[in-house]
Amino acid sequence: MTLENTDIQVVNAPAARRTGLSRRQIALLMQAPSVALIGMFFVLPILSIIVLAFWRTESYQIIPDFTLSNFSAVLFEGAYLTFFLRSFITAVAVSAVSVILAWPIAYFIVRVSGRWALLLGMLFALPFFTGEVIRLIALQGLLGPVGLINSMMMWMGLQPIRALIFTPIASAIGIFYLYLPTAVTALCLSLVNFDFRLADAARTFGAGPVRTFLEVTWPLNLVGTLVGFILCFVPALSSALAPRFLGGPNGTLFGMSLAQQFGDTGTWSLGAAMGVFLFAATLLMVFMLSRAVNPQRSGFSGGTAEREGR
């Protein structure tokens, strides 16, 4: 055993002593790969679609001169705005329903199910991991013209429900099926980290269950709720696979049209402008929702200090 190993001061600058690097250098080395990855393959790509959005495409050729025509096309050519509004309404409705459903579900999982909480929570996360294509195939089995629901209707001697496939409602159901697990997982994580003794304290001091929920549980989990909403809203707003497969002729959504610009039509710069538009819409939504959070009531004031002191 060397003297160095028994040196108590090692405790405060552990790796530094052995490698001859300063704390700062080690900290830098540990973050460098991740920063490089996200910088190269997230920040630069986003910047490059912003640049491309101001260029032109003519007969599959990209011409680098400054123009606003792509953005004016997205904003003023009725079709794209219609697709966007349709996507926006679908995304807001689907995310709202998911979050409203996720609350009682997550509450039950975290608060009531006890030792089964991990299993029940993971059962919700599981379908998310099988990928969109696989889940859309499974959905076809449920909603399709000869799928489970309609076959059951016919088996019982009823008319099949037409709205179940190739309509905007069908793609909304599909998007709901795809992203409900995200909302539930986000809320479960929020409630797992919520100190239920706070709610118990409110009850002890005479607040009823409704008041306890409105004044303690809800505001302290508002951030988790909004994160769940956003994590559902972002992919729902730009969904391209579900409407293509379930939406039918009148169900074109913005993401699907965006994908077409990079496929058959080859109008990349217009597609880039649509991508930038989506990104901006998401940022706007995040900004507006974050303004709804009152930091003082969301547990940010002193909450971390209390946790670190424990």
Binding site: P45, F262, G275, F279
Partner: peptide, 23 residues
């Protein structure tokens, strides 16, 4: 920076990376 990709959908990630690497 690390959490930012959560706010960008898969399809935008795919096409923007394609534009960056390809173009």
């Amino acid at each position: 920076l690390y959490l930012a990709p959560l706010f960008v959908a898969d399809i935008v990630l795919g096409i923007s990376t394609m534009v960056f690497t390809n173009l």
